[in-house]
Design a protein around this nucleic acid. Structure first.
Lengths: 209, 209
DNA sequence: GTCTATAGAACGATAGAC
DNA sequence: GTCTATCGTTCTATAGAC
């Protein structure tokens, strides 16, 4: 791999800094400094700062997508009507699992995903692709089948609720001061809390329209 | 009020642009241009861009806080153990209500709140104050009373879930492409969906530790 | 209280030597 | 594939006239 260990170093550094400071809060100068590379390296390897961010987003999102997809396949192979809780777990679980790349992982990756989903920069519109959309549509169909009373609109609202709770979880833990009696949270407990919380929420009776 | 209609114009313009483009994505040049004011006006009236944002945040958050507070008072005046659903409504409802300032309101205000809560800029740490913390602690105590089986940590997780679902709702609606069969969402329906979703979630049995 | 003018710093991108 | 050097832009903040 003489062909660019630099490329990977840049991806690692960018993932770290974009998660920490957001897209606009991160300069290519800071990225190349952390990566031990030259200022011009981003332009050479990725073309621009926006394309570097797109590559970072792809690398983080791909394993999550694959796990969501595999989980749904495994579930539907057993039965066409899985319990709501197992659907929730297959959909939300991968968002809590450790990411292969990066060091401390968890919290920072969560923050990166929130950045990808919510950064107001115009460039952000191209950070996610058609694959994520198709996975979400497959889950949408599966949920619709086991929750037949829900209108498509309310079901879509609930699925966005899953994303909100899982993606924002650690971000808000990081920013909001908690009441004195609350000790710091363990990652694995947080995963089970989320599945419980969201399974009950998804199973709520539909609104009468 | 010869003494500065400009001040209000700046607040309105800043609220609009910060919600649309985030803190770093908004320049004081854009703010003063939209406000019809001079470039130096921000420095004169607020001291700096960061202090302007703090003022914007205060103006948006204050009525929400007051409504949350009043709702809890009214509830506890009736009974010390209100139903979970009414606690959820008193806590989350104000986040859905129209804001007095600003024009089109709803969706943009939601995005502004997400910016306030999640902007990675270091300045953002001072955008919320002690009052919001104390309101959250009062709700925390009320929820703890009617949901006695929950550990403080799991309860705190669930309260952050409420904030995540309500605050992120319209933001994600704005950014994620929805499945084809989902038509665009009405604001008032979204409020009832959220209360239903969150009441069921808060009422879920606790995790065995 | 409003304006012009500018200081001073940071940024993304790239041309061209090696 | 890596580096230096720099161009052109944009930003916040502020000094000083009115």
């Amino acid at each position: 791999m003489a062909t660019s260990d630099t490329r990977t170093q840049l991806l690692d550094a960018a993932e770290h800094l974009f998660a920490e400071n957001g897209y606009r809060g991160t300069s290519i100068r800071a990225i190349t400094r952390l990566a031990g590379a030259n200022l011009a390296a981003v332009g050479y390897h990725f073309g621009s700062k926006a394309e570097l961010m797109a590559a970072v987003a792809r690398r983080v999102i791909e394993p999550i997508n694959a796990a969501q997809c595999a989980g749904l396949d495994a579930l539907l192979a057993r039965t066409p009507d899985p319990p709501v809780g197992e659907l929730v777990e297959a959909f939300a679980g991968p968002l809590f699992d450790e990411m292969p790349a990066g060091d401390a992982g968890g919290a920072r990756t969560s923050r990166l995903i929130v950045t990808i989903l919510s950064d107001p920069a115009e460039e952000a519109r191209s950070w996610t692709g058609a694959e994520e959309d198709s996975v979400r549509e497959r889950y949408f169909a599966a949920f619709a089948r086991v929750l037949p009373g829900l209108s498509p609109e309310e079901l879509w609202f609930r699925m966005r609720g899953i994303l909100a709770v899982t993606a924002v979880d650690r971000l808000q833990a990081y920013q909001l001061p908690s009441p004195g009696c609350v000790s710091s949270v363990a990652g694995e407990a947080s995963r089970r809390w989320a599945i419980t919380f969201l399974t009950a929420a998804m199973s709520a009776p539909p609104i009468r329209t």
